[in-house]
């Protein structure tokens, strides 16, 4: 849909907060007619799905790995390194990725100097969804380890000993003791992630929107930003934001219900 036409359909200007003449559900109708809204919706869900598959298991795996390290000192050192990127700003993380994987980045530079073709992952719409997932893994997978490590340290060590005495090997102990201990935490995090299905790294993606183009990178939040802030069409954008809020609330409630039905704790209980 052409945004020049959208612009100014419902001109509410900042400062003019307050009762405005109602337009019924017109803003919602316009929103649903905008094909870019549905594209953004589809992008959002597919990024969420990719991250559930490729991001979610990483902290669990890292925690299991770290937990098997015997030396406290070594484990502490690795933990310090793992948590660090979580505290970097998205601007910094993306500049770092750009310098490593971008067209003028280290990898392309090394390839070229050895006579290969260079490439630019940062502007390639085809790999964008995986790129943002990789950035998320780099920044936050280490931080995600904290909660699993805490759950692991709460496991009663006698269980391992009993299992070992009964003849369970390393892998069977992991399967029958460690993973069940992690199950409530995993369920909880899954519930929260599904409840947040419509939220995928707003700042992160907005920073790269220009380089990649909106086709691959437009997600729910950036769409709201684009329509509302960049094109000052507040009515439609606010309708989009509201839909997201309601939809997310419903998703959390459903996911929580499912967790309860599977016998897990979930986020809350009545």
């Amino acid at each position: 849909m052409d945004h020049g036409r959208l612009q100014g359909l419902r001109p509410v200007h900042p400062g003019a907060v307050g009762p405005a003449p109602g337009v019924g559900f017109e803003n919602f109708t316009l929103l649903f007619q905008d094909s870019r809204f549905w594209d953004a919706f589809a992008n959002t869900l597919s990024i969420t799905f990719i991250q559930l598959v490729l991001f979610f298991p990483v902290p669990v795996a890292l925690a299991l790995l770290l937990n098997s390290v015997l030396s406290d000192r070594l484990r502490g050192l690795v933990q310090s390194i793992l948590y660090l990127p979580h505290f970097f700003s998205w601007v910094l993380v993306i500049t770092i990725f750009q310098q490593m994987l971008g067209g003028a980045g280290l990898l392309a530079q090394q390839l070229r100097s050895h006579g290969y073709e260079g490439f630019d992952l940062m502007t390639d719409p085809g790999v964008f969804k995986f790129l943002v997932t990789a950035q998320l893994v780099w920044k936050d997978a280490g931080w995600g380890v904290i909660v699993f490590l805490a759950a692991l340290s709460a496991v009663n060590q006698d269980l391992y000993e009993a299992a070992a005495v009964d003849g369970a090997g390393r892998w069977r102990r992991m399967w029958h003791v460690t993973l069940p201990a992690l199950r409530p935490v995993i369920a909880l995090l899954l519930v929260l992630r599904v409840g947040d299905a419509l939220t995928v790294g707003f700042e992160q993606i907005l920073l790269q929107r220009d380089a990649v183009g909106p086709g691959a990178s437009e997600v729910f939040d950036t769409y709201v930003w684009w329509v509302g802030i960049a094109n000052t069409d507040y009515g439609i954008a606010a309708a989009g934001g509201l839909i997201k809020g309601v939809f997310s609330l419903v998703l959390v409630l459903i996911a929580n219900k499912v967790a309860h039905m599977l016998g897990e704790q979930g986020v809350y209980r009545k």
Partner: peptide
Amino acid sequence: MFFNAGLIPTYLLVTG
């Protein structure tokens, strides 16, 4: 924590 109306109302409030 569970519900928010999004970017636009916040923006309008802050500028307002």
